[in-house]
Design a protein around this nucleic acid. Structure first.
Ligand SMILES: [Mn+2]
Ligand SMILES: [Mn+2]
Ligand SMILES: [Zn+2]
Ligand SMILES: [Zn+2]
Lengths: 144, 144
DNA sequence: CTACTGTTGCGACTCATTCTCAATAAGGAT
DNA sequence: ATCCTTATTGAGAATGAGTCGCAACAGTAG
């Protein structure tokens, strides 16, 4: 299996774009975070490592990471988007506590079947899905 | 079954809030739109009807509609949230074309089972879910 | 190495949403 | 019905995520 940076370089080459150190630093940082992240967290990490990269470049790189399949939007919260790297990881869904905001990742194979059924029913070539389940975690239920 | 305005009034009363014509106009407008909508569309509808209501009040009313279960966030797109009224409607999921943006609503009972399984597995009291399936619609596949 | 052109950083800008605050109006009490 | 307290409203200012314009810079083809 190719590394994420190899995948990214091939993607960049295929699109006729240029290989730049800034873009590759973003790729590296994205795969150094093993959690959901937003642009500010990504920016903070890069700054902490003394990488001189502007927020604009991060914003410009994110669509490339999405299109190349290295990351995906995880959810929209607190007024902005959150992402997660997905290359090299199995698909998972999210279970969120409406009280404390905790997010648990889970896998559930039956959701995959829905893709096929729905795709056929409406003549769609289905490429993926996003499932979020909401509720109240055990800890938060105790507190009330 | 109670009407949406009755549900809303009860909710308002239970929270110790005040019944205002502005809030009730928003409720009415939300249930006059039988489609996904955003704040601007809601505002435009109210203005078209010569309701003098400010956008700030709409923004302030939306959390109340969410909490009372009359509406839900449908999806985030074009830099802002879209909503839909759900009171009095069966739960449905969304199938979206990544090319043209078309959104199809569908129902799929097997997703309900996932709620139960996951809730038990992680000790959550599950209250709902949001499933979006992505792909390319038949029309868009022809065009390329 | 050169030329061409895509990319970067910076700050200005846009636009959705929130906040501030003075005026208004619910709604409980009398 | 009137008063009083305080939540709510409208208007506009403020915030903040994300985008854009532009001049300096740097890949890459030849
Ligand atoms: Mn995740
Ligand atoms: Mn819908
Ligand atoms: Zn919780
Ligand atoms: Zn389409």
């Amino acid at each position: 299996m190719k590394s994420e940076i190899e995948v990214f370089r091939k993607f960049i080459r295929n699109k006729g774009l240029r290989k730049t150190p800034e873009r590759e630093q973003v790729v590296r940082a994205v795969f150094a975070i093993h959690d959901h992240f937003d642009v500010d967290e990504l920016y903070a990490l890069l700054r902490r490592e003394n990488e001189k990269i502007s927020k604009a470049t991060i914003y410009r790189t994110i669509p490339l990471l999405l299109e190349s399949g290295l990351i995906q939007e995880a959810y929209f919260e607190d007024g902005h988007l959150h992402y997660e790297h997905i290359y090299g990881h199995d698909h998972h869904c999210h279970l969120r506590c409406l009280d404390c905001g905790k997010v648990i990742e889970f896998t559930e194979e039956t959701v995959k079947d829905v893709e096929g059924k729905v795709g056929e029913r409406y003549d769609f070539l289905v490429t993926g899905h996003k499932l979020e389940v909401y509720g109240h975690c055990g800890k938060c239920r105790v507190h009330k």
